[in-house]
């Protein structure tokens, strides 16, 4: 087979083409929808996730004229839009985490096949983790989960959230610290405050 041309590999080419041929945007969806769907479902459950993901790609499509074409990978951009749309559901997210923390039953994973063997061993830590996630300031939770569940690099998180790299580091470090305290049973009284650190 012939080698792949640039047009066939990077997202920016498809986004650029979709400005003239809107249907070309379908390729952006095919490439990223699986990961983004899983990510959003993990945070909000499949009921809300379907709408959020649909809207993410529609918003992206409408804003494709403003996409910075020098960024070949659209992942940070799409996760950024999804994160923004998810912020409308922050109460749902926190409520579900609290249910998991208090009852040990996770409303988000209920509709998926359970792997109970792993479940039992991790029972206590799951509940602690959920409790810790629920108390994190939103910006910290966003940064932490984009790294842990979205698989984004710190630089990609900075692009997605439109904050400085130093802010991402600071948020993730504080969030991890909080998780460690919770898992270690220290239960600090103070909550982490939302603040950004500039380099």
């Amino acid at each position: 087979m012939s080698q792949l041309s640039r047009e066939e590999v990077d997202d920016a080419s498809f986004i650029e083409r979709s400005r003239r041929e809107p249907e070309a945007f379908a390729e952006v969806f095919r490439r990223h929808a699986p990961d983004i769907t899983r990510y959003v479902t993990r945070r909000l459950g499949d009921g809300v996730a379907e709408d959020v993901v649909a809207e993410t790609f529609l918003v992206a499509f409408r804003q494709r004229a403003g996409y910075e074409l020098t960024r070949p990978n659209a992942r940070p951009w799409l996760y950024g839009i999804a994160t923004h749309l998810m912020s409308r559901h922050v109460r749902t997210e926190v409520r579900q985490l609290r249910i998991l923390e208090r009852r040990g039953v996770d409303p988000v994973t209920q509709s998926f096949a359970e792997r109970s063997d792993e479940r039992v061993s991790a029972e206590a830590s799951r509940r602690s983790l959920a409790g810790a996630l629920a108390t994190l300031p939103r910006g910290h939770r966003d940064a932490l989960l984009l790294v842990a569940w979205g698989g984004l690099t710190y630089q990609e998180v900075a692009e997605a959230l439109n904050v400085r790299l130093g802010t991402v580091r600071s948020r993730v470090n504080r969030a991890r610290h909080r998780l460690r305290q919770e898992l270690g049973g220290i239960n600090p009284m103070a909550t982490v405050s939302e603040e950004s650190v500039h380099e």
């Binding site: 379908a26 095919r30 699986p34 769907t37 529609l58 096949a113 932490l144 842990a148």
Partner: peptide, 25 residues
Amino acid sequence: QLERLRAEIPRPGPADLQAQEDRLL
């Protein structure tokens, strides 16, 4: 530990997302 939380949620395949893609198109 965080990576394992809710890890049972699967990554959907193309067939699972076909309806969504049709809606977008």
